[in-house]
């Protein structure tokens, strides 16, 4: 009873926050509602007993990804009116993706998984160990491939943003550290009435 009640509570919160992500006037509020949505899905994962997946979701998405979103969105000067004007163009694409995801969910819940299959997952080990058992053995290739995809994304981002401009002044830590007093300061003895010759 308690579990079912909390499921509906968190699920309702999840859907509400997702709606607010789309319809918030201010992009910063959208990101904050997105954080709430992630938090609620974390709770849902914990409710079904997958606390490892839930907390990893929280660490990765709330603790890192959403902060970077917020970081970028806070610095952008976005005109809300132009965004709302353009939103209708994306509706067909959004519907397409929504349809694909819905079909996936239906396929996975109705056709793929039978009840016997679920029972094999309920064993004495905690789910952290269960994931550890299969991640590097059965799903080794998939795991490595997803790692390579992430690496490609990272390299792509670095290549896109890291443009070398010779006009920009940079700190060169090695040359700073190897500087000695003799490089920067010298002691000049000045005779009275002559001043320093600039050389």
């Amino acid at each position: 009873m308690f579990l079912v009640g909390s499921f509906f509570l968190f699920a309702a919160f999840l859907i509400t926050t997702c709606i607010f992500v789309i319809f918030s006037k201010n992009p910063v509020n959208s990101v904050l509602f997105l954080v709430l949505a992630f938090l609620n899905s974390t709770f849902l994962f914990i409710l079904i007993g997958a606390e490892f997946v839930g907390i990893i979701l929280a660490i990765v998405y709330i603790g890192a990804v959403a902060i970077l979103f917020l970081f970028v969105v806070m610095m952008l000067d976005i005109q809300i009116t132009t965004l709302m004007f353009n939103i209708k163009r994306y509706i067909p694409l959004a519907l397409l993706f929504a349809g694909i995801i819905l079909a996936e969910i239906i396929y996975l819940t109705v056709f793929k998984t039978s009840k016997d299959n679920l029972d094999t997952f309920i064993i004495s080990k905690n789910n952290t160990e269960q994931i550890g058992d299969v991640l590097y053995t059965e799903y080794f290739i998939d795991f490595q491939l997803s790692g390579i995809v992430l690496l490609l994304a990272m390299i792509g981002a670095i290549v896109l943003t890291h443009v070398y401009r010779p006009t920009i002044k940079r700190q060169n830590i090695e040359s700073q550290n190897s500087t000695t007093a003799e490089d920067r300061v010298k002691l000049v003895k000045i005779k009275s009435g002559e001043g320093i010759k600039d050389d």
């Binding site: 929280a58 660490i59 709330i62 603790g63 902060i67 917020l70 970081f71 806070m74 905690n126 952290t128």
Partner: peptide
């Protein structure tokens, strides 16, 4: 006394930045 205590602590300490960033904004 939960199974994933250390991950919980890591998650909570990484949320700490939200207070600062929301305050600043």
């Amino acid at each position: 006394n939960i199974n994933i205590g250390i991950l919980y602590l890591f998650a909570v300490s990484s949320f700490g930045v939200y207070g600062v960033i929301i305050a600043g904004w």
